[in-house]
Design a protein around this nucleic acid. Structure first.
Lengths: 229, 229
DNA sequence: TTTCGTATGATTGTATACAATTATACGATA
DNA sequence: TATCGTATAATTGTATACAATCATACGAAA
C-alpha cells in the first residue's frame, strides 16, 4: 500500500480510470491475477473495453496501493506478499487496531454499537455451524464498524487498506470452528470495553485480538500455504 | 495519504512522470502551492516542459499520497491538513515509532548506530547555537535512520510517509532551544535503548518522544498557525 | 557448439487530438 | 434589478499516434 493515501476516500467510481482501478484491484485480491503475473496495458484495456490511458492511470494508483509493481519501460507485475510482510502487517495492525478501539470508545454511535452486537450474535450462530464464508464476512464487517467508529478518516483508511491487503493471504489459510468461536468472543469483549467506555481495556483487547489472529494463522499453515506454491 | 503504498520504493526518478511527481510533491510540502490551491494540468505541464499525460499520472499518485484531492471533471486541489489530522498522525506515529524502535533493536547495523550517535552529537551543538534549520534536518535524519534500521520496508515506508506529511505543518510552528535540547536527549535515550537491545524500553521511549513532540507543537502555537490564515 | 551482434516485434512512455463536462459571461425576460 | 437560460470558454476525460525502450529470434563468427 505504497503511497499511502493518508485520508482519501475511494477512487472515483464512475470514470473509466476508477472502474479499471477497482476491477483490477478486485481481481488481484481475489486471486484472479497471481503473484508476479505481468499485467499488460493493452490486454487489460481490451478486456474492459477502454484505451490504455485510463489503464495506465489506474496502474499508477495500484502501484501506490502496493498491489502491483511497475518496472520502468518493462511492465507491471502483481506484487508478491512475503511471510515477513504478513507478519509486519499484523504487528502494525495490532498496534493500530488498539488505537482505533480506544478512540471508538468516545465516538461510537448507538447505531454502530447495535450493529456490533448484532454482528457478534449472528457470528456465534455461523461459527457453530462452521459457515466459514459468512464468518469471514462478519469478521471483516466487525472491524470495519470499529474503523468507522474511531472518528478518524486517517486511521480508518489506513486500517481498511491493511485489512484489504491481507485478505489475499487469509483466503489461503484454514479456519477452524475453535478459532472462529474464540475470535468472536474476543470481538464481544472488545465491544463491551467500547460500550463501557474503557479505552485502555479496549486498546489492550483489540491489540491482543490481532496478535491471536496472527498466531492462529501461523499455526494453521501460513507457511505451508506459501511453501506449496 | 490515501492509498497507502504499503511497501513501495520511491517513484521512478527519471521518467517524466516521476519528475513531475517529485517536483509537485516538493512544491506542496515546501508551501509553494498553498492549501486548496487548484493545480491545472496544462500549467504544471508547461512549467516543467511536458505534456499533460505524465502530469495526469503524477496527479493520480499524488492523490493517493494524500497531497492533492481530485474532483472528477473539475480539478486537482492541494489537500488541507486540519488540526485533527495532525493530532491523528502524531498519535498513529507515536505507536508506530515505538514499534519501529523495538524492531530496530534486533536489526540495527553498526554503521546505523554510529550515524545515530554522530547525529546526536552534532545536534547538541546546533541546538545550543539555536540553528533551527540544521536541527530540523538532523531530527528528520535521526528518525529516518531508525526507520531504515527496523528492517521492515512496510513500516519504513509508512513512517516516512507520515513524517513527510507533517513536514508541512512543522514548518509553521515555532521551535525553541529548550525543546531542541530535550528532543535530542530523548533521541539519545532511544539510541541507548536500541544499542542495549532493550526493545520494551526503546518502544516506550520512542512512543513518548512523539507524544512530547506533539505536546510541544500544540503548546507553541499549532492552533495559532492555523487561525492566522 | 557457443557466443555475440543485429534485426524484428512487443510493450511502455509521451504527445496530441478530440469528446465530455464544468465554469463563466452575457443577455433576455419578468 | 434580479433571475434564468444559453452560448462560449476553459478544463478534464479518453483515445490514438508516434517515439523510446526492452525482449526475443536468428544467424554469423569463433
Amino acid at each position: 500500500m505504497q503511497g499511502y493515501d493518508l485520508k482519501q476516500e475511494v477512487t472515483d467510481k464512475y470514470s473509466l480510470r476508477g472502474r479499471v482501478f477497482n476491477k483490477v484491484r478486485e481481481d488481484i485480491l481475489s486471486g484472479k491475477y497471481k503473484e508476479n503475473e505481468e499485467l499488460k496495458e493493452i490486454a487489460i484495456g481490451e478486456e474492459l473495453g477502454v484505451s490504455r490511458t485510463p489503464v495506465r492511470e489506474a496502474f499508477r494508483q495500484l502501484e501506490l496501493e502496493g498491489l502491483i509493481q511497475i518496472i520502468p519501460n518493462k511492465g507491471a507485475y502483481v506484487t508478491g506478499i512475503t511471510i515477513e510482510d504478513v507478519k509486519d502487517i499484523y504487528m502494525i495492525r495490532s498496534k493500530l487496531e488498539g488505537l482505533c478501539a480506544s478512540w471508538a470508545c468516545e465516538h461510537i454511535t448507538k447505531e454502530q454499537l447495535e450493529e456490533m452486537e448484532e454482528n457478534i450474535y449472528l457470528a456465534k450462530f455461523h461459527a457453530e455451524k462452521g459457515h466459514f464464508e459468512q464468518m469471514s464476512e462478519l469478521d471483516s464487517r466487525f472491524h470495519e464498524i470499529m474503523y468507522e467508529a474511531c472518528n478518524s478518516k486517517m486511521l480508518e483508511h489506513l486500517l481498511k487498506d491493511f485489512h484489504q491487503y491481507v485478505q489475499r493471504v487469509r483466503r489461503k489459510t484454514l479456519s477452524t470452528i475453535e478459532r472462529s468461536l474464540a475470535s468472536n468472543s474476543e470481538h464481544q469483549a472488545i465491544m463491551e470495553a467500547i460500550r463501557d467506555n474503557n479505552p485502555e481495556r479496549a486498546d489492550e483487547l483489540a491489540t491482543l485480538h490481532i496478535h491471536n489472529a496472527y498466531e492462529n494463522m501461523v499455526k494453521n499453515g501460513l507457511k505451508e500455504a506459501y511453501l506449496n506454491e
